[in-house]
Simulated assay, not measured.
Amino acid sequence: MPHNIAILGSTGSIGTQTLDVISRFPERFKATVLAAGSNVEQLIEQAIRFRPSLAIIADESKYERLREALSPLGIETAAGSAAMADAMERPDFDTVVTATVGYSGLLPTIRAIRAGKQIALANKETLVVAGELVTRLLAESPTRVIPVDSEHSAIYQCLVGEDNSTVSKLIITASGGPFRTFTREQIADVTPAQALHHPRWNMGAKITIDSATMLNKAFEIIEARWLFDITPDRIEAVVHPQSIVHSMVEFIDGAVKAQLGIPDMRLPIRYALGDATRLPSSERPLSLSDYAQLTFEKPDPEKFPCLTLAPYALNRGGNAACIINAANEVAVRAFLEEKISFPQIYTTITDALAAIPFVNTPTLDDYVATHRAAIAFSEEKTGCKMKLR
Rank of each mutant, 00 (worst) to 15 (best):
Leu227Ala: 07
Ser247Phe: 00
Ala374Ile: 14
Glu125Lys: 13
Ala47Trp: 04
Ile146Met: 12
Pro232Met: 05
Ile209Asn: 01
Lys217His: 08
Glu140Asp: 15
Leu73Asn: 06
Leu307Tyr: 01
Pro108Tyr: 07
Ala193Ser: 12
Gly12Leu: 04
Pro72Gly: 06
Ser13Leu: 07
Ile56Gln: 02
Pro52His: 09
Pro108Cys: 08
Arg24Glu: 14
Thr213Pro: 00
His197Ser: 15
Ser247Glu: 02
Ile155Trp: 03
Val160Gly: 00
Leu267Ser: 13
Lys124Thr: 10
Ile57Asn: 06
Tyr271Phe: 15
Ala355Gln: 11
Thr191Cys: 11
Tyr367Thr: 00
Lys169His: 09
Asp94Trp: 06
Gly116Gln: 09
Pro108Arg: 11
Arg200Gly: 02
Glu223Lys: 06
Lys381Pro: 00
Val239Tyr: 11
Met88Asp: 06
Lys217Thr: 10
Glu250Cys: 01
Ala87Asp: 04
His197Trp: 00
Ile110Asn: 01
Met203Tyr: 13
Ser23Leu: 08
Ala99Asp: 12
Ala331Ser: 03
Ile349Asp: 04
Leu215Met: 14
Thr11Met: 09
Gly12Pro: 02
Pro299Ser: 11
Phe335Asn: 05
Phe179Ile: 12
Thr183Asn: 07
Ser104Ile: 15
Arg111Asp: 07
Ala115Ser: 15
Gly131Glu: 10
Pro108Phe: 08
Lys339Ala: 04
Ile187Gly: 06
Pro199Ile: 07
Val101Arg: 09
Thr18His: 10
Leu215Glu: 02
Ala188Phe: 10
Gln42Thr: 08
Val239Ala: 09
Glu283Ala: 12
Leu294Pro: 04
Pro142Ala: 14
Asn328Cys: 10
Arg90Val: 00
Ile209Lys: 02
Ala122Val: 13
Val332Phe: 00
Met386Ala: 04
Arg24Leu: 11
Arg225Ala: 04
Ile75Leu: 01
Pro343Leu: 14
Gly105Cys: 01
Gly254Asn: 06
Leu267Ala: 11
Val368Gly: 00
Arg136Ala: 15
Asp264Ser: 03
Thr77Gln: 05
Glu140Thr: 15
Gln186Pro: 05
Val190Phe: 10
Lys387Ser: 04
Tyr103Ser: 13
Phe296Thr: 10
Ile22Ser: 08
Glu380Asp: 12
Thr109His: 00
Thr208Asn: 01
Pro52Cys: 05
Asp366Arg: 07
Leu133Met: 14
Pro268Val: 12
Leu294Phe: 08
Ile222Met: 07
Gln194His: 04
Gln46Met: 07
Pro142Met: 11
Ala188Leu: 06
Glu338Asp: 03
Thr100Cys: 12
Phe50Ser: 03
Phe377Pro: 03
Ala327Met: 08
Glu338Leu: 01
Glu60Phe: 03
Ser281Val: 03
Phe50His: 14
Gly318Ser: 00
Pro232Thr: 03
Gly177Ala: 14
Ile187Thr: 11
Tyr367Leu: 06
Leu121Asp: 03
Asp229Val: 04
Phe296Tyr: 15
Lys303Ser: 13
Thr181Ile: 09
Val330Phe: 12
Ala58Trp: 01
Ile187Phe: 06
Asp366Ile: 02
Val128Pro: 00
Arg90Glu: 04
Ser141Ile: 11
Thr231Glu: 15
Tyr291Pro: 09
Val40Glu: 03
Arg24Tyr: 04
Gly317Asn: 05
Gln42Gly: 00
Pro52Phe: 07
Ala369Asp: 09
Pro285Arg: 13
Cys306Asp: 07
Ala154Arg: 07
Leu336Gly: 02
Leu19Cys: 14
Ala139Tyr: 10
Thr32Phe: 01
Ser81Phe: 13
